[in-house]
């Protein structure tokens, strides 16, 4: 059990996919325009990264080395399509607002990266935990970024107007530069905390 909690902590904090490994940034910038998008996208990445890791880990002895990347892509694409279809069937409005971004999870480097770097070399259960940890690590940045982008850029939280109507929201925060700015600030803060911890530990 301790092994798994350590693994989880490591993937979420010490080797966080976004602020440590700089993976999956493209989608983190694209879908964070409001909190609901960020939430569903985080959920999608958590589920898909767990499912992919488990499948790749189960198949690892059968996957021929020279075609392992294409195999991983096929597995990821299958899960992404299933998730997309489920969203369209049971949460139609959300699938409309997310548009093409759910499909683009196929190209999310976190999922491919983890199946390549972890699931191919490890047993099923640790791979599941690794998938969960990386998904949570992704959500850990996605949620605050989408919260602040929606609040500052549109003046609302999860679609409910909270800022006074006469206060003009900073629309630039909703554009790509705004996303880069916020992501940069978050990475700076979190890495700062990490460095501080490391120094204390010394």
């Amino acid at each position: 059990m301790r092994f798994y909690t350590r693994l989880l902590k490591q993937t979420i904090w010490h080797e966080n996919p976004i602020f440590h490994q700089m993976l999956g940034i493209c989608s983190a910038l694209a879908v964070t325009t409001n909190l609901k998008n960020g939430l569903i996208m985080s959920l999608a990445v958590i589920v898909i990264s767990m499912a992919t890791n488990v499948t790749v880990s189960m198949l690892k002895t059968f996957i021929p080395r020279n075609i392992r990347l294409i195999t991983e892509m096929i597995i990821i694409a299958t899960f992404v399509i299933i998730f997309d279809q489920l969203l369209k069937a049971y949460y139609y409005q959300m699938s409309k607002t997310l548009g093409p971004y759910v499909g683009l999870i196929i190209t999310n480097c976190i999922i491919l990266g983890r199946s390549e770097a972890f699931a191919l070399r490890n047993r099923v259960l640790p791979s599941l935990v690794d998938g969960l940890g990386n998904g949570l690590g992704y959500a850990m940045l996605l949620l605050p970024i989408s919260f602040f982008r929606e609040l500052l850029g549109a003046g609302s939280i999860a679609g409910h107007q909270v800022m006074p109507a006469n206060l003009e929201p900073a629309r630039a925060i909703l554009l790509a530069p705004g996303a880069f700015l916020l992501l940069g600030i978050f990475i700076w803060i979190l890495r700062g905390i990490q460095l501080h911890h490391a120094k204390e530990a010394e």
Partner: peptide, 21 residues
Amino acid sequence: YPLIFVFILTFTTASLLMGVQ
């Protein structure tokens, strides 16, 4: 072997997706 593997993989995933659809 890779050929057989890919064939089985695509066959399985395609059937799965057809079922879901």
